[in-house]
Design a protein around this nucleic acid. Structure first.
Lengths: 158, 158
DNA sequence: ATTAAATCCGAGTGGACTGGTTGGTTTTTC
DNA sequence: GAAAAACCAACCAGTCCACTCGGATTTAAT
């Protein structure tokens, strides 16, 4: 799973949509204004979200977008996968299959990246739009490992 | 924490170094040949790794690099932080402090990205070079969440 | 002393990706 | 018919990545 700002914009927009979708569909210009994302860029993102069947569109005046499913049934991982198509990892041409399997010593880190991908996916799959809105983040997953030495600084995932 | 291919190259190189550092220091041209990374690019990466005091250099013929600490005392998170300087997250100008704290509704996803950053950091901090070499990845951290709906596809983290 | 192996250093570069713009067209409501 | 909205296709400036090039310094071996 690729993690880029594009995916984050999409999640921001979807959270905004989930928040403001009561009865009427929500127009992209509303989301653009609230989230300070350019309208045309949002259009590109929502074209992908629509193809992934995460949202439904209503055309014409008073139209806009609705969530295809409920906010509690839409997981963050799905949004990111929809806009940020996977892309192949560094060497190992694709995760499980051929390529890297050949020369074992050259891809010692293969398992590491695969496991990291699992971690990220598990986490983002465990969070729905509803969770984000209600601030019910499941912090239950990880508990601090032994981690003996000095604590190095933390930053945003990009 | 930023996740890019640069960080992955650095980890690949450091694992290679840990593997081949017996008595002699390991030259970058050896690592470049084994890992198929350009020598000059490796030089840039190791300049950062040296400044971060993760490796020590020995100049002159027969020289090269050594791990500054043992492979079991060098965590993957440190390597990535050394080469891939953090960079500020999307909106929220920096994680904890000012900026995004002001307009709460605009940054509903703040907590999500912060928690994701925590997850990634915890995982990468729990893995040392020794673990990667010995293939002792600590998969103990995450256990599958409820995850009711269909399982969407998995891919590499980038 | 020379040579050569290696680390160091800084500048530059092609390509990819980001975030956005422009300029439309269709659909639909009023 | 006017206007609001989704749609769509191209294009673009900036940035970063992975890499190259051309050196310089240090030092071991001859």
């Amino acid at each position: 799973m690729k993690l880029s700002t594009k995916g984050r914009y999409a999640v921001m927009a979807m959270v905004d949509l989930a928040r403001h979708a009561q009865t009427k569909p929500v127009s992209l210009s509303d989301i653009a204004a609230r989230q300070e994302i350019s309208l045309s860029y949002l259009e590109q993102l929502f074209a992908r979200l629509r193809r992934a069947e995460l949202v439904k569109s209503v055309r014409g005046p008073g139209g806009g977008y609705r969530l295809a499913r409920g906010s509690a049934e839409t997981r963050v991982s799905e949004i990111i996968l929809a806009v940020d198509e996977p892309i192949t990892a560094t060497r190992c041409t694709e995760m499980g299959q051929a390529g890297c399997r050949a020369d074992r010593s050259k891809c010692l880190t293969h398992d590491l990246w695969e496991e990291l991908g699992n971690q990220i996916h598990v986490f983002l799959s465990s969070v729905t739009l509803y969770d984000v809105l209600e601030r019910k983040l499941s912090t239950h997953i990880a508990e601090a490992p032994p981690a003996p030495a000095n604590s190095d600084s933390m930053a945003a995932a990009s």
